[in-house]
Design a binder for these strands. Structure first.
Length: 457
DNA sequence: TCTGGGGTCCTAGGACCC
DNA sequence: TCTGGGGTCCTAGGACCC
């Protein structure tokens, strides 16, 4: 068995360039939600030394006079481009595992009777993806997934590989690992890398020469698996988990929020989105967690973060059941926050100079909803603790109808009123939490909205 | 003024039971 | 004065990924 890792080069930037060739050869960055910080960079932007995660507002300060194109993220576009790339990969190999929006593992058979020149096969596949979608990809092929990752980095870095690197022999493996920084190995993160470097373990090859027992001791079984994979022993399983075990929707707010009424809107929106994801993967949840935190960058303000979990009376997947539980959990969170504040208040009363001062409410910067205890959707089980079965079925059907309308007319064409804000004073249009998120620099929905289709003049 | 989001896995340690 | 032991379950926190 061989693994081919197909990795899109600078995925988000490449998506933008397909439809805006003027960005070719320029320093381009794509920003997170609310245009918060840099999440993707073109090679030119990397060459300028722009770090990943740099707050957008520091970009102009840190790189004055540079021509840098900064774009809001357009996940609709990236998701659609990803789907196109993956469908080509699915034609190339029957067994494929989509690992993330920009990566997939292809499982390749090796037959002694019909040997395949996988190096040439990979080069042709990369060229085909590029020609059909405009997306540049790099392909690494090896006996384990960790080694395939290493190979793909070589394919990306050196044009001589023509977008495909095959680590075939032991000799090639050792050579590659001796040139590969230990910090870049899949599964070795910042913490472990720093410790290894300090101990003089600099390359992936150095790492493979450590005794297995000491690797397990300091990096648990997870680290040992990585060690074995680098020794060409296939041991990291990609669990084909069709259903996620938890589903989370969370966002930072463009401005901080202090009142429960204002917080209830995004929380309902997150809950509805979680419910929608549940229905998409044909699951039901047994618990709903809400968490929220203040702005850690505003050190002068009172800091607090809190999360509370509600157990549902029976598994649920409808918008209204999940939202109701989320609001209950949110109320618990706020109660805990208030308790904290009144403790602080009591302490303040003991200090003569602050006596009589009332601590201000927390200013929330970020919140989220997690649904857990996920079970496959089955026949509705009746439980005497649950809402009446007739009502439950009605709520299910209501959500299903909403899903169909949104599938046909676009997301958020119809939604639960609790996730709505007041009308936008300028346009009179209902303003949802989601379209209150800032994305001033977003490209058009070239591939998914007929109004945004590219024109030729 | 402005600082991302969504997951998984592993382990230590506490709660609880007998 | 002396203050069990072993098992299981759960959770929080840390580490990692993209």
């Amino acid at each position: 068995m061989l693994y081919a890792l197909v990795d899109c080069d600078n995925c988000y930037v490449s998506c933008e360039r397909v439809f805006n060739p003027g960005l070719e050869g320029k320093a381009v960055v794509v920003l997170s939600n609310n245009d918060g910080c840099v999440v993707a960079r073109s090679p030119e932007a990397k060459a300028l030394g722009i770090p990943e995660g740099l707050p957008f507002f520091q970009l102009a300060e840190r790189f004055p006079g540079q021509e840098i194109h900064a774009l809001s993220s357009n996940y609709t576009l990236y998701g659609d481009m990803s789907r196109r790339v993956m469908s080509i990969l699915r034609d190339a190999a029957p067994d494929i595992y989509v690992y993330s929006i920009d990566e997939a593992f292809l499982m390749l058979d090796e037959s002694p009777y019909m040997p395949v020149d996988y190096k040439a096969w990979g080069e042709a596949l990369a060229a085909k993806v590029r020609r059909w979608t405009g997306m540049p990809v790099s392909i690494g092929i090896a006996r384990t997934k960790t080694l395939a990752k290493v190979a793909s980095k070589f394919a990306k870095r050196y044009p001589g590989y023509r977008k495909c690197c095959f680590i075939q022999t032991d000799e090639q493996r050792e050579k590659a690992l001796s040139l590969f920084p230990v910090a870049d190995v899949w599964g070795i993160g910042r913490r472990h890398a720093a410790r290894l470097m300090a101990a003089g373990v600099k390359t992936a090859l150095d790492f493979t020469r450590l005794p297995a027992a000491s690797v397990q001791k300091s990096m648990t079984i997870t680290g040992l698996r990585t060690w074995m994979e680098l020794h060409a022993r296939d041991c990291i399983a990609l669990d084909h988990l069709p259903r996620k075990q938890t589903i989370c929707t969370s966002r930072s707010f463009p401005r901080m929020i202090a009142t429960p009424e204002a917080l209830a809107v995004p929380v309902a929106s997150f809950a509805a989105r979680c419910a929608q994801k549940l229905r998409q993967q044909k699951s039901m949840a047994q618990t709903v967690t809400v968490f929220m935190s203040t702005n850690p960058f505003r050190e002068e303000l009172d800091q607090f973060s809190v999360g509370r979990t509600i157990s549902l009376p029976a598994p649920a997947q409808s918008d209204s059941e999940i939202i109701r539980a989320a609001h209950e959990a949110m109320a618990d969170c706020l109660k805990a926050a208030r308790r904290r504040l009144s403790l602080d208040y009591a302490e303040l009363q003991n200090e003569p100079q602050t006596m009589g001062l009332r601590p201000a409410d927390h200013q929330w910067k970020r919140a989220g909803v997690i649904v857990g205890g996920i079970l496959p959707e089955t026949e509705l089980q009746t439980s005497f603790l649950d809402i009446p079965p007739v009502l439950k079925q009605k709520l299910q059907r209501l959500s299903a109808v909403a899903d169909r309308i949104n599938a046909r007319l676009g997301d958020e064409s119809i939604q639960v009123a609790a996730a709505l804000r007041t009308a936008d004073p300028a346009t009179g249009k209902a303003l949802t939490f989601r379209n209150s998120i800032l994305h001033d620099r977003r490209s058009p929905f070239y591939t998914t909205d007929i109004r945004d289709i590219i024109g030729v003049e």
